[in-house]
Nucleic acid binder design. Structure first.
Lengths: 152, 152
DNA sequence: GTTTACTTGATAATGGTTATCATTACCGCG
DNA sequence: CGCGGTAATGATAACCATTATCAAGTAAAC
């Protein structure tokens, strides 16, 4: 049930999903935002604002770091992006897939590597908690910390 | 099974547990460290370094903020304290109870309030994942995010 | 008591994130 | 089409939690 999560999502689908949501919200179209959205769509796992910015600049874009943070904040507020805190003081982001399926993370405390995994029993347990508790649960995240294969 | 977690731990037991562990490690006794350990022992849930420092200063202590961070780092490295990242860029800490029993957190994304809960099925699911994955899992944490009763 | 080196508290430095602000450019309206 | 209001941008300063530095203090071994 706990799989290594070898999925390869259709990046394009999230890209258009996000573009539609932004249009529906009435935001203006801009090259900076487009570039950031496209960059996020291309990610396989989470990336920090700085990493996204660096990749964009390497590819010739002139987006400012502020626009990357602004776009991430906007997308996060709209639920289009999931924020992951691995505990090193850096926020990482990855696309939120519309179907609701998602994964969680194994964080190596020695080298900082992040791997993804998915587990149905875990999701089930969390949903049951959400139903039972006096709290409206919108999202959840799980991090398992330890040593990856290489660091062990 | 998912309880509101109304436990009232014996603060003194963790206090002596921590003091013993520090003595065994061979650290020197100091008033600053004692003060921080006592403050942590008195917490019901997680608190940030700054909060701990503020409380100590209010109570007349002269501990410097650096000593609070240093002590937290030391205790965390010894597994005596658990670090929680609620996603607001501030690390929070709470005593790790020797029995291994622990709780997780409900984080209100609008007011920042943090509540604790415990769930056996969740722990069970996580242990099964830990056994199955190619990763040595030392710790785990779960955060459910949403709106608390007051903010809903 | 002396010595050694662990600790401390104040403060400077670091680095991710946010706020500011003048400028640019989208887009609805005439 | 061209104008005007204003969202959005990019550079940069400000912010703030956390870390590193360092001279002074102090616990513990001898």
């Amino acid at each position: 049930m706990a799989t290594p999560h070898t999925h390869t999502h259709d990046h394009g689908s999230w890209n258009t999903h996000a573009a539609d949501a932004l249009a529906r919200k009435g935001t203006r179209r801009s090259s900076a935002r487009d570039a950031v959205v496209t960059a996020i769509a291309a990610q396989d796992c989470c990336a920090s604002a700085q990493e996204i910015h660096a990749r964009l600049r390497t590819d010739g874009s002139t987006v400012g770091i502020a626009s990357v943070y602004r776009t991430l904040e906007l997308l996060h507020g709209m639920g289009l992006v999931t924020r992951i805190d691995t505990g090193d003081g850096v926020a990482r982001f990855e696309p939120t897939h519309p179907g609701g399926e998602h994964h969680h993370h194994l964080v190596c405390t020695s080298c900082g590597a992040v791997e993804a995994f998915h587990d149905d029993a875990l999701e089930e347990a969390i949903h049951r908690i959400a139903d039972r508790v006096d709290f409206r649960v919108d999202a959840h995240d799980v991090a398992l910390r330890g040593a990856c294969r290489a660091c062990r």
